Amino acid sequence: MFRKIARPAVLMGLSAATGWIAWSGVALLLPVSLSFPILWSIAQSRKIAALVSAGYFLAASRGLPQGVAAFYQSDLWLGLFLWLCASLGFVVVHSILWTANARARPFRYLAAVMLMAVPPFGITGWAHPLTAAGALFPTWGWWGIAAMTAGLMGLVTLVWPAVAMALVSVWLWSAATWTDPILPDRWRGVDLHFGSSLGRETGFYRQRDLIQIVREAGSGSGRVVVLPESAVGNWTPTVERLWIHGFADTAVTVVAGATAVTEEGYDNVLVAISAQDGKVLYRQRMPVPGSMWQPWRSWLGQSGSARADFFANPVVELSGMRIAPLICYEQLIVWPVLQSMLHDPDVIVAVGNGWWTEGTSIVDIQLVCLKAWARLFAKPLVISFNT
């Protein structure tokens, strides 16, 4: 009886430790997540596999309860409820696909990896072990994805110790040679510290201050300046004219987050503004589920939800460069970045508004995901966050 209780408890504890360490905001610790498939494979039943999956996911996403409470200005119970709801997809997929059949197990785990990478399960596919490919195989690109996939399948076979030793060797080599992604020439990413007021306080004086910040950032060699998610607020003709006028005597182009209101709700967008014109450059493919994307509103005949474009506009063009844009939540999941990489962009542009994550590791995790993907595909990276 003691062994029946102790073994699941130990496996769940190790899985939780794996999620906690791997997703602590350090890029070179991402490969720790590869312990999860090993623990999943040695579970002795589907119930134990579910416990292992829950331990990993809940530990990896531990910042969610506090972040949700801060965002909604509510108590912690709402955050805990959404935290558990978000884990359901991960736990269900990995428990259903678990098998005691050693021959079938690699293909079952491959199916779990794929399901958690694309919608609908991929909508909450955080802490995906595939992200570690950037820390293990920098600059390998799609070959790195293939090697990582083969490694994940190997870790759930009977020869997993040999596969693990090989991956640890690659990890040590990568750690010794690791460098952060480069910033593209003449691009500047501006971090702001306006807290929850960014995107909510959008009067003339705030717009004027932001324009001045951009002018200063572009006064040297900078020609494209990036501002965080929601920086501009609602994108209207009046706001567009104000910003165009603000750059009348410069050659600077600003890429900034904004909100484009529609009849059904709104789009979370990036706009591009220069002395000549302003336009919507990118519409977010996957807004934050629950707080922004609320599909049930349309089912009830209501409006107010952010639109999810899922697979639209994976790359956009600006100043002769192909850009892979990633807004906030898209940095935590797999398919937006991989879809963009299929089009071989010149640069990754990532923005976020993380004021509500204070005291959590969420923004740090977003940053390490971005660095891992940029290093994997050898792409320059521009980052702009508000905290």
Rank of each mutant, 00 (worst) to 15 (best):
R200M: 12
V382D: 03
F2G: 00
V168K: 05
T149M: 10
L210P: 02
V170S: 11
L115S: 00
I362V: 15
T157W: 06
A69V: 02
L158T: 15
A127R: 08
I323P: 01
A275K: 06
L28S: 13
D191L: 11
M1W: 09
H94S: 05
W335E: 10
Q66L: 15
W293P: 05
W178Q: 09
C85R: 11
T236I: 03
W178D: 08
N234G: 12
V91F: 06
S197N: 13
A22Q: 08
Y282V: 03
W126V: 08
A112C: 03
P129T: 00
Q284S: 14
A104F: 06
A312M: 03
G290M: 05
L318E: 05
R188D: 10
R186H: 14
Q66H: 12
A133L: 07
P345S: 11
A43L: 13
F204P: 05
F310N: 10
A16L: 08
G220W: 05
G199W: 08
V351Y: 00
S45P: 12
H94P: 02
I333A: 07
A256H: 04
W173T: 12
M114W: 11
V156H: 14
Q207P: 02
Q73M: 11
T250W: 00
Y282W: 01
T124Q: 07
G246S: 02
D267E: 14
F2P: 00
S305A: 08
A146Y: 06
F36H: 09
D267W: 06
V255D: 07
V92N: 02
P37E: 07
I362C: 03
V337T: 14
P161G: 12
A112D: 02
A146G: 09
V316S: 04
P289A: 10
A27T: 15
T357K: 07
L80T: 04
R103W: 11
M1E: 14
H343R: 14
L130F: 02
F247G: 00
F137D: 04
D309R: 12
D209V: 12
V32L: 00
P237Q: 06
A166R: 13
V68L: 09
A117E: 07
L326M: 08
V315Y: 08
N268W: 00
L376Q: 03
A176S: 14
A175P: 04
G257A: 05
S53V: 06
T124D: 01
V255M: 08
L338A: 13
Y329P: 03
R186N: 10
T18S: 15
W142Q: 09
P161V: 06
W143D: 10
L34V: 05
G301I: 13
G195W: 06
